[in-house]
Design a protein around this nucleic acid. Sequence first.
DNA 1: CTGAAAGCGCTTACAG
DNA 2: CTGAAAGCGCTTACAG
Lengths: 350, 350
Amino acid sequence: MTMSHFPKPNATKKAKLSDVASLANVSASTVSRVLNQPDIVRPEIRERVQKAIDMLDYTPDRMAKALSSGRSHTIGTVVPTIGGSAIFSDGVEALQDELETLGYSLIVSSSRYDIEREFQQIKTLLDYGAAGLVLVGDTFSPDALRLIKKQGIPTVTTYTNKSRHGIPAIGIDNRAAGRELTRLLLKLGHKKFGIVANTALQNDRSQARLDGVREALAEAGVPLPLKNVVEVKLPTIENGRRGLAGLVELQTVPTAIVCTTDALALGAMSEARRKGLHIPDDLSVVGFDDIDVAAESDPALTTVKNPAAEIGRIAADYLNRAMNGQPIPLETELPASLTIRSSTAIAPAR
Amino acid sequence: MTMSHFPKPNATKKAKLSDVASLANVSASTVSRVLNQPDIVRPEIRERVQKAIDMLDYTPDRMAKALSSGRSHTIGTVVPTIGGSAIFSDGVEALQDELETLGYSLIVSSSRYDIEREFQQIKTLLDYGAAGLVLVGDTFSPDALRLIKKQGIPTVTTYTNKSRHGIPAIGIDNRAAGRELTRLLLKLGHKKFGIVANTALQNDRSQARLDGVREALAEAGVPLPLKNVVEVKLPTIENGRRGLAGLVELQTVPTAIVCTTDALALGAMSEARRKGLHIPDDLSVVGFDDIDVAAESDPALTTVKNPAAEIGRIAADYLNRAMNGQPIPLETELPASLTIRSSTAIAPAR
DNA sequence: CTGAAAGCGCTTACAG
DNA sequence: CTGAAAGCGCTTACAG
């Protein structure tokens, strides 16, 4: 088998600031100034330095720069998951994109919905000199909170509109979204509800959604027996499938299924189909988030749009502002638009 | 509106190595040794230092460490996209996960399928002191190649089994996968093919898949008119939809549609349905990658599995080995298992 | 407007 | 086994 070795023998070391300085016959300070505050250096010298920079293909070492200046341009983020059919990857993409144009780089880590791992990762991000942090949700380990306060580093949290612990929050009102989706189903005449919620790992977003569902049902005087709520850990398609399998075994089979994420809903629909149930005639199903495939399932999924890309962009913008000493809003609520498609219909008359 | 300011007035500065040293009454060198080669320091001193570390909650500054030691533990990756329904996010997640256990952090950026942006991002990653690089595909800008060679930094590329330019590659044989999928359709009696391929931005993976399709058709003596190949830029659901819309307008409507990614295939299926075509009775559709929702569409999509998570893990492992001076295989081909579901059937007799 | 010097927080030969 | 000193590649007061 052909093998490869690194570093290649022909590897050349990068040019450094002092190389530029000697080539241009100026001091290191001057090169630094040309790089960072070109205006205060005499034009002819500036050009000479610039030429040297070009000749040597010089680019400054960001780590040395960060170390000596005391401020870094690295932002860290910890999301529950990067992969799969969750919306976080869309948010991370927008965040990275926006940060890039602002001159920052993004270190990404995923906590797998585990608050302790999240703490460890925040710690690592800080050791890497992260100048800002983007988190998810409003539930953090006490250690993590202590650390963030202690370092006083700009931090925002996302996918929630509630700021706990003084950390600025950007997101939708998950609870209101839960209410709205439920009211839609109630209006369609549904009285028997089943819920699949990824709340088993104390997920604040899904918990808020579930609370919203409960609220709307209580408001309408529709009971929600304990057994009709299946709590799962991860919001996977597979768990949606299992959740539905459990719900259709109940004494009185629900006519409406609310899932706290689209992935769960897709799994639930798939399993329902397998069991011979027709959606939406026999069963209405709704999800949350409006991931891109939600519009493509058959039937297309009724859901609530969670504007991940916008959340990512705003997070980048806020962080940038905060790092420039500007104040940022503590709670930024984004609209969660109800998106009615074909997975919901009038409750079957039974 | 409530606003938030950073840094908080109560922010405390991090403890540094010298703080630990004075608290433990030893030299900085000793603290450094306790951290990096504990065995060579006398047990009682080691414990004293450890106690100081704990008391001060000390964690070393990774940037300073990297700067002074000359080696960093940051890996950079550039993928075409992080979000959406592409497999890359699954690969990035696995990569990050594995790197984390190996003690590395991952800086992520997305090139949006643009080779020039990719180059810029590689440059930035190197400025950030990246000790290794994970790329995608086998097509790079000359500048990027020059840079990589020049720095001699461990680099691997993914989602392809072909190593060009001496960069170790980890992935499936896209061309063979294209052939296999096509042969399946041929075996089902299809003779009229339509293709939707995201090759407009010189995407080497999709191009290889398309080449494979062509090869299998030529082998079987089945013609593929130019008009039957729709080349799009991005592999989005929307483009899949448009692609299909074009294909069904042809003189002789294809009975089999090959899409070079699952997202395209999902879009194509959705559009076909909208046009009143039944899948798979009127039309067979196949995709590539086997993203998690591919199994949940109705009908479930026939595709080829692209093992993104495994690719990510192997990439992490190889990089780690390379950074320890060990050789790594130049080409690592992973199996691309054909996954036959319900979107393919015998060609309609017409 | 420019340069010499000190320093950012670590590591690493070099002595002892 | 431990410490003093130099150095990683930059920035930043401080003089001039």
